[in-house]
Simulated scan of single mutants.
Amino acid sequence: MTETALLPTAPLRARAEIDLAALRANVRALRERAPGAALMAVVKSDAYGHGALRCAREAVAAGASWLGTATPEEALVLRAKGGLPDGVRIMCWLWTPGGPWREAIDADLDVSVSGMWALREVSDAARAAGRPARVQLKADTGLGRNGCQPGDWAELVGAALDAERAGLVRVTGLWSHFACADEPGHPSIAAQLGAFRELVGYAERQGVRPEVRHIANSPATLTLPESHFDLVRTGIALYGISPSPEVGVPADFGLRPVMTLSASLALVKHVPAGHGVSYGHHYTTPGETTLGLVPLGYADGIPRHASGAGPVLVGGKWRTVAGRIAMDQFVVDLGGDEPAVGAEAVLFGPGDRGEPTAEDWAQAAGTIAYEIVTRIGTRVPRVHVNEVASGAGS
């Protein structure tokens, strides 16, 4: 086992252990779900909090041939520091006017275009660069977020083909995104698939010859084989978290959670009955007991909404956050148990040691597991274990 921490001195106040062997196994399991399609590993937002550069390398080592980010800045860092093999494509899709189009072209990124303003800006950058931009046209098939409206699709496709004939762009992809693929049977799924096929068909009849057509996100990759087309974009499932309880738990799809978040107890003390705990005294001890201080708080990404509900494994038993979660710490009622100061408190992990999972914290906070792992802050070192891929940067 290999292990690298941002802080080499032990013990750590807290750590987010990232099991890269689990990530590689998840890539292989997802590829088996979509054997006829290439796989994009989405590593936006620092790989959902798991560490983008290392996760990108490991995903590629396991068979991902594309990487995806939201912002161009994320993609540019990957290209510069990722230590990736030749031929790995990187796509980014969240652009605003005046973005780094020229840098993206020079870095050989695939850039998403949803409207005429973006096509004009990327064409100008390509003219200045003296080489065509790799452009993927995004259609809004019903999500109502980014993407070109169907009524404007003909104009965008026609302008893109004009730019392609002028040597300014190469239309490498046609794509869209589901709104409700995490809700099996939702009527919007079939409607969006139909709209996507129609819009892709129109573009191809006009002369677009894309390298890839793609609409499948993690839940669609897992449950909608008819949506796989040429490429599937896997985000949260890559990190071993189910897109939703309705779709299934990770084990149902052969996935294993990659992140385990733990901390060392900073204090264990005896208190009498009726003792208030944390701000506002929303919790008072029902009897004489022991309290454990966990040195993590909302500044580290622990959701304050989980006050009084967040589960923690200490000494082999589930405990619950007692009172409010503060900026840097929270308390658990140990019920008279006396673990040593420095004992491990596990907030979440795969669950096979009896610890809570990110989904358990999501339920406690009234949110989704995506948010639980993504929000873990930079004060918590990522400790990557079981690494096999190598490359520059960290």
Rank of each mutant, 00 (worst) to 15 (best):
L6I: 04
L6S: 15
L7M: 04
P8A: 14
P8W: 03
R15M: 08
R15H: 07
A21M: 02
L23D: 11
A25S: 14
R28K: 14
A29K: 05
L30I: 15
A34L: 08
A34N: 12
V42K: 03
V43K: 05
K44F: 04
R54P: 01
C55R: 03
A56P: 03
R57F: 01
V60A: 05
T71G: 00
P72Y: 07
A75L: 06
A75R: 06
V77M: 03
R79H: 01
A80N: 05
K81N: 09
L84C: 05
P85L: 07
G87K: 10
R89W: 02
W93A: 15
L94W: 12
W95G: 12
T96N: 13
G98F: 10
P100W: 06
E103D: 15
S114I: 00
S114F: 04
D124H: 07
A128C: 03
A128I: 02
G130H: 06
R131W: 03
A133S: 11
V135T: 08
K138M: 15
D140S: 10
R145Y: 03
R145A: 08
R145Q: 14
N146H: 11
N146A: 13
A154G: 11
L156I: 04
V157I: 11
A163G: 09
R170D: 10
G173L: 09
A179R: 14
G185S: 06
S188D: 13
S188Y: 00
A190G: 13
A190F: 00
A191W: 03
G194R: 15
G194P: 03
A195N: 13
V208S: 12
H214E: 06
I215P: 10
N217K: 01
S218Q: 08
A220M: 05
L222I: 04
T223Y: 01
T223G: 03
E226I: 02
H228D: 08
H228C: 08
H228M: 08
F229I: 00
D230C: 10
L231Q: 11
L238I: 07
G240I: 05
P243R: 09
P245C: 02
P245M: 02
V249P: 00
P250Y: 09
A251F: 00
D252F: 01
R256T: 15
P257K: 08
S262H: 09
L265H: 07
L267I: 00
L267R: 15
V268D: 05
K269Y: 02
H270I: 00
P272F: 01
Y279N: 12
H282E: 12
Y283P: 09
P286I: 07
E288D: 15
E288G: 14
T289F: 05
T290L: 06
L291A: 12
G292T: 11
G292M: 11
L296P: 10
G297F: 01
G301P: 11
P303F: 01
R304L: 06
G310M: 08
P311F: 01
G315W: 09
G315K: 13
G316V: 04
W318A: 13
V321H: 01
R324E: 15
M327Q: 15
V331H: 13
G335T: 03
G336H: 09
D337E: 15
D337L: 12
P339W: 04
A343I: 03
L347G: 12
F348K: 02
F348T: 01
F348M: 02
G349Q: 09
G349S: 13
G349Y: 00
G351L: 02
P356G: 11
A358W: 07
E359S: 12
I368K: 10
A369Y: 02
V380I: 09
P381E: 12
N386I: 00
A389Q: 06
S390G: 08
G391Y: 04
